[in-house]
Structures are given as structure tokens and as C-alpha cells.
Amino acid sequence: MRHTISVLVTNEFGVLSRIAGLFSGRGFNIESLCVAETSDELVSRMTIVTSGDDRIIEQITKQLNKLINVIKVHDLTGEEYINRELALIKVNSTAETRAEILGIVDIFRAKVVDVSPRTYTVEITGDEEKIRAITELLKPFGVKEIAKTGRIAMARSLKVK
């Protein structure tokens, strides 16, 4: 099963390679990893998407906790959390297709952030499903390039069941 794990780490050199090394050395799988500074410049947040059975996920969280640079590990899976990814999609556009592409962009509440005579570059944020959906819809026009972030996530404060 897939898990989204949010990890607070000290913001210093070498920490990313400790985390990456832990996953590769123990044969755990990383589907995506995002890292950036938090509001505290001494602390970074890593959002790791990984998969495995309960035993493996338990080992992953314990092994992460064991690293000296790891301050807090929070497996968000199974609780309410917000998750987002961002993608930049460069798609072919012609006089005939421009309106249709803009229509799709509008429906998805995406944005066109760069224009050239033959292309549009679309910026979209959302969960994985939404990004996959717009990508599929843009494909027929000819997608030239895609750049995607991994997932970032945060637990919801108000938990409504």
C-alpha cells in the first residue's frame, strides 16, 4: 500500500543523502520525495511517498526516526491530509487547437504560464489524479515536455469524520 510520510529534518548538508541512502541500502522504495525549508530555517520538511506492507512501512518510519538528523516522522496515510503536486506541461498548440486547450486549462483551473507560436506551457497544481487527468486530455494535442514535482502533504487541522 502507498503511504505518504512527512518527515521533519535538520536543514543541513548531507541529510538528503542519509535519507536516500537509508531507502536504497535497505531496499525500500521511494516513489517521490520533495524537500524544502520550513518556516524555521533550521528545519526542512521532506514528503516521501513510498509503498510496502505494514511491516515494511513500520520499518521505514522506525529507521527514519533512528537517523540523528530526523526530528519527527509522521505517516499521514489513514488520516485526513491535503496533498498537492505541481506540473508544468508544454503542449503543442496551433490556431485550431488553442481555444480547446484553453478550455481544458480553464476547467482544471490551471494556468498558461508561457506561450510561443507553437506551444503553450500549462501550470497545474492538484492531487495526482487531477494532474493525470489533465495530462491525458492534453496528450492528443502533442505533449512535448512534462516537469512534475513529487507530492507535498500536510495533515488537516480540523478532523471531520
Binding site: 511491516r55 513500520e58 522506525k62 529507521q63 533512528k66
Partner: peptide, 11 residues
């Protein structure tokens, strides 16, 4: 003392 040792190989 090491939580990672627990339930690593044996439940």
C-alpha cells in the same frame, strides 16, 4: 533499546 530491532525479522 532500538525500536527498529523490534518486529524487524520476527513478529
Amino acid at each position: 533499546i532500538d525500536p527498529t530491532s523490534i518486529s524487524k525479522n520476527v513478529a
